[in-house]
Design a protein around this nucleic acid. Sequence first.
DNA 1: CGGCATGGCGAGTCTAGTTT
DNA 2: AAACTAGACTCGCCATGCCG
Length: 253
Amino acid sequence: MHLEEQGQSWSQLVPAGSGAGARPAALEQAVNEGIRHHGLPTGTRAALNQAFGFRLQGDTKIVRLMPDLQEHKDLLKDLPEELDHRYRSSVKRLLVYLEERGQSWSQLVPAGSSGAGARPAALEQAINEGIRHHGLQTSTRAALNQAFGFRLQGDIHRAPDLQEHKDLRKVLPEELNKVYRSSINRFLAHLEEQGQSWSQLVPAGSGVGAHPAALEQAVNEGIRHHGLQPNTRAAINRAFGFKLQSNAEKRGS
DNA sequence: CGGCATGGCGAGTCTAGTTT
DNA sequence: AAACTAGACTCGCCATGCCG
């Protein structure tokens, strides 16, 4: 009834499919707000948690600040002395966040791969997800990098995901301008969306002067029907020395 | 301390235009 | 028409500052 008085409804606050363990942010805010300012019973939050299996929490100010797991406490203790206190705080927040989600550091950071320069994939994913969807500070990643010497990265916009494609990006000619580079990124991401890959379209050993038919087809199709930049063909030709042609050119000749 | 906001930086992206 | 370019813009990065 409180929601209705506010002109709101359950479905507006709780994403479809929110099940046990979820913590719908809008709902949490509405409940806390209702308790604090609109006289809802203080047990309302607990009631929702019981009824739906949610993990709604009270205002962040009174949320516990120390992780529960011994493993996490030890980790905090072992942080470098000279680590900026703000970074230390971020690490602590991350550990608490992980515990809220039923995860732990050792699950995300394999024992072997915790040295300087490492980039534990599961941890990176957890952090990026936390930053984007669960209110973690954007500097959390930087904090972890500082504290442990990691090289965690954010997720690049629509970046190619296949290792093969990542490698391909690395071997693009130094002098290739950024616009072409961007078009090629988009093309590789497009291939992945289609369930294809570069190596499927380009015969091994294709060098300067080649015009791989399957690739040409995919490029022209992508430009015409899937919103790829019109300069994608030129970008690939420039980068790899291919001689891909547009459909129009082929018709004319 | 810990939470939050700010701002410079650089890679990548997009748009609209010019050259070939 | 295709190739190419200039410049504005977006976005994630991270260091830093302010406040309670």
